[in-house]
Every structure is written in structure tokens, then in C-alpha cells.
Design a protein around this nucleic acid. Structure first.
Lengths: 242, 242
DNA sequence: TTTGAAAATTGATACGGTCCAATTTTAATC
DNA sequence: GATTAAAATTGGACCGTATCAATTTTCAAA
């Protein structure tokens, strides 16, 4: 994973940028980079494309490649890194201790909507798993997930008390690297208030969507009701389509 | 813009997918596509990569390329299209009539934070523009923006009553295609409640961040307090880095 | 000094090739 | 039949080239 040419270039360039090596905010041109790194221009282009997509640099034809001034100042914003997409990975908040409390666990027939979203047959069953996510014993997320039985036959309550995605990758060698999510907000309902310790004037953030396995199999439909103070979704958007 | 090879391939493939031409949910292999379209495999790869990044297809080495079942069902979710990033473009809600009410307009010295975010000198000035966005006369967003004077010397109140981004692209030929945004939620404050017609139990969604010009110049620091019923941010996330 | 055309620079698109790695298919063996 | 090994399939990485398009630089003419 780490020995790809274009990734090595990226790592090195990021470091050089961070070390202020390019004090005019401009990178060398692609042909020079190609020569100095001793790799093809295609690989340079690939590295620069990814970095541009992440918002670290801007490219302008005829002019050159420029460093995003914000990258130097606020590098942390540009690190969407992580090995997985699950909550256990996403909220790596400053060494706080994550916890899970199992609220509900049952096996139910898949509803029409779940059949569609998870690509199931009418007689398929799913786990319904409702959990409370904690950070240093403080509740922050009410998470309700639906997972097809036939994909994870071994999903026992004891497994569910830990990270399902980690279990998947460690035990079954499958990884969850893609998701389609919607983010929105709502007033908190009574259950939110009880479980998350909110007043009736405090809202919840909602992240709902579908997690996919590597090969595109829909794994889980998830609905997360997040304590509003812990919801902060950062994103760099580019309309360039590549 | 529309005559690029890889885009033509993308358009055609999307249409063929939508027409159920690949009823086994599997696309032809790259080499066949290359031959049948009469283009190089590289171009096929490029088209497929972009489509994979958009979540339309999944690729699996050794196995093939597969259609995301959700694409057929819910195609609208996969259209992040648009020519600009501004609010005027983002919320194209079903032919509703957008409107703008100017609340505040002044020229002020750039604060420390603005100096950093917009890359300004200590003696630079910015416009502070506060506007209420309407949809069919219903208020949905309180938008506060800061734009450097030196970038848009001609930003008069009359311009500000319309779309600033459209003005930029039509009059000055510059386009805003990149942004760095954070999305979060908060209880509504009194002003939110008055301007957006919310009760004290209803929250606002907040989208704040920086808009960039094509060449990487930071154009605007923006803070949008959105009526919670209108905040819905859809996104496909992939950890594959390309 | 200013203007404007030509030249140089620089990223973008596209081609086509080599080799590799994961997976599936096929065939052989027990 | 089941198991295993070999072969074929299929996407991934990387290289090097040719041509184009936007921008900047150079330099001669006015």
C-alpha cells in the first residue's frame, strides 16, 4: 500500500510543502519533477491530481502548480485519513476512550426499503442493531444499523458490543471503504434527549446512509443520531470531476 | 467541455447502464470496451475511475467492473452536477423561485482570522455582506460572507442583491469551482428564529468555509445558517484515494 | 515607453505499451 | 466427487510519447 510510486511522490511533496521548501508557493513544473524524482511524468501527474483533489494544491494550465495557502496553516483539515469508514475510526477524538452500549439486538424480516437498499429478496432477514456510542463514558451517538444475515452469519451480540467493521476486516478479511451518506439536522426527540443528555432545545445531527464492502456489496443501512456538539463534517469540494 | 473522449465514454456508459443494457450488473472488461469504443484502454480507465469515484460502479481486480445497484434505483443522488458552487446553484429546489434580501453591507478591516483565511495583509479591507436567502419568499438561509476588496473592487450593493458568483463569471470571467466546507448543527439563536421563522426548539444547520477561485485564490469566507429542513448534504465517500 | 505578435513555458488529453496481482476458470489428479 | 495445480481473465501501476491549449515571457516595431 505504501510502496506505490505516486504515493511516495505525494508523501515527499507534502513534506516539502510543509517544510516551506517552496517559499514562492509554486511547485516545480511537471517535467522538472519527473526528472528530479526519476519517474515518468504520468506518475507526477497522478500524484498532483490526487493532491489537487484533496485541495492541497491548485493547478493552472500555462501557469504552474500552486500550494493552497490554507494547507500550511491548517494541515489537520486535509487529513481525511483512516483505514475504515466506521464510527470507531471516524471520531478519533484526541485519545478519548470510545465505548459501546448495546440497546437493542434482533433479527427481523427486511422491509421493502431495506430490500431495495441492501439488495435483498423478500424473504431475507436482517439484524437490527441499536447501539449507543460513548466517548469517555459520555453518550454521543445513537446508532441504528441493519445488516443482512446472509452477509454476516456470525454476528452475535458479543461481537456487536465491539466494532463490527473491525470484526469484518480481522475475522473475515473484508473491508468497508465506501459509503453513501446524507447529513442533516433535526430537533431532538424525547429519546435523543434521554440517551444523549440533551435539552429539548438542543438538536441532533443525523448521518444516514449505506456502507459498502470493497466489491460493492451493500453491507449496512445506518442511521446515526449524533449529539450536535460532536457533528462536524469537513469536506473539500471541487467541481472539476477529476 | 463536452467533447472529451473520456467524458463521452462516461455519458454513454451511464446511459447504457440506465437502459439496463448490462442486466448482469457487470460491465464488459476494459480491453473489450477499449476495442468496441475504438479508444485506448487508458481513456476507458479514466472514465471508469471517475465513475467509480462517484459511486456509480465498483471495480474489482481479477473479477470485473460492477454497477452499483443503487444507481439504477436512485440516480438523482449521484448527480452532484452544477456549474458553480454558490447557493444559487446548490439549492435548485424543484423550480422554486430563489430570492435575496440584503440585510447588511459594509466595508471593514480584515480581522486576524480573515487575514489568515483569505491570505490578506494587515491593512486590507473586506466587504461584509449579510443576506437572507429566500425560496418562494420563504427564508431559508442567513448568509454572512467576507470578500476582499482588492479581489472584487466593483462589488456594489446592487450587485450583492443578486448572485455574486454569477456576476464574477459573467462580468469578470472568473469561476468558483472549489470550496472547503464544514457542516454542523446548533440550536437556533434569537435572530435565527426571527429571520428564518423557527421556534426555539428548532435548530439551524451551519455550513461554513472558504470558496476559492479556479487558480486557488481564496475568494470568500462564508457562514450559512440554514433552516434545518433545507439542509441535506449528500456525499459518496471512498477511502481509495483515487 | 507602449503595444502587439511570436516564442517559450506549462499543464491537459490521449495513445499504446509492459509488467504485475487478484480472481476466476479450467484441467488434472487423487 | 473433491482437491489442487495450472492457465486464463481482468483490473492496477507505471512508463514514454505526441499533440494541444492556456498562460507567460520575450522582443521587435511603433
Amino acid at each position: 500500500m505504501a510502496d506505490l510510486v505516486y504515493r511516495k511522490i505525494m508523501r515527499d511533496l507534502k513534506e516539502r510543502i510543509f517544510n516551506q521548501e517552496f517559499n514562492d508557493k509554486k511547485l516545480p513544473d511537471e517535467r522538472s519533477l519527473s526528472e528530479s524524482y526519476g519517474v515518468s511524468r504520468s506518475s507526477i501527474k497522478r500524484a498532483l491530481n490526487v493532491m489537487a483533489q484533496q485541495g492541497i494544491i491548485f493547478k493552472k494550465r500555462g501557469s504552474g502548480t500552486f500550494i493552497n495557502p490554507l494547507y500550511l496553516k491548517n494541515q489537520s483539515l486535509f487529513n481525511y485519513e483512516g483505514t475504515n469508514l466506521g464510527v470507531t475510526d471516524s471520531f478519533h477524538l484526541d485519545g478519548k476512550r470510545p465505548g459501546i452500549k448495546l440497546i437493542d439486538y434482533q433479527v427481523i424480516p427486511a422491509s421493502k426499503e431495506l430490500q431495495q437498499d441492501l439488495f435483498l429478496e423478500p424473504d431475507d432477514f436482517v439484524y437490527k442493531i441499536k447501539r449507543l456510542r460513548l466517548l469517555d463514558d459520555e453518550p454521543i451517538i445513537i446508532e441504528t444499523g441493519y445488516i443482512p444475515i446472509k452477509i454476516m452469519p456470525g454476528l452475535t451480540p458479543s461481537v456487536v458490543k465491539g466494532s463490527i467493521f473491525n470484526y469484518l476486516s480481522e475475522i473475515e478479511g473484508k473491508s468497508v471503504t465506501k459509503s453513501f451518506m446524507s447529513i442533516l439536522a433535526e430537533p431532538s426527540n424525547q429519546q435523543d434527549q434521554e440517551l444523549l443528555g440533551l435539552s429539548d432545545k438542543e438538536p441532533v445531527g443525523i448521518m444516514e446512509g449505506i456502507f459498502f464492502l470493497d466489491d460493492g456489496t451493500p453491507l449496512e443501512v445506518s442511521n446515526m443520531r449524533v449529539h450536535y456538539k460532536y457533528l462536524k463534517y469537513n469536506t473539500f469540494v471541487s467541481l472539476d470531476e477529476e
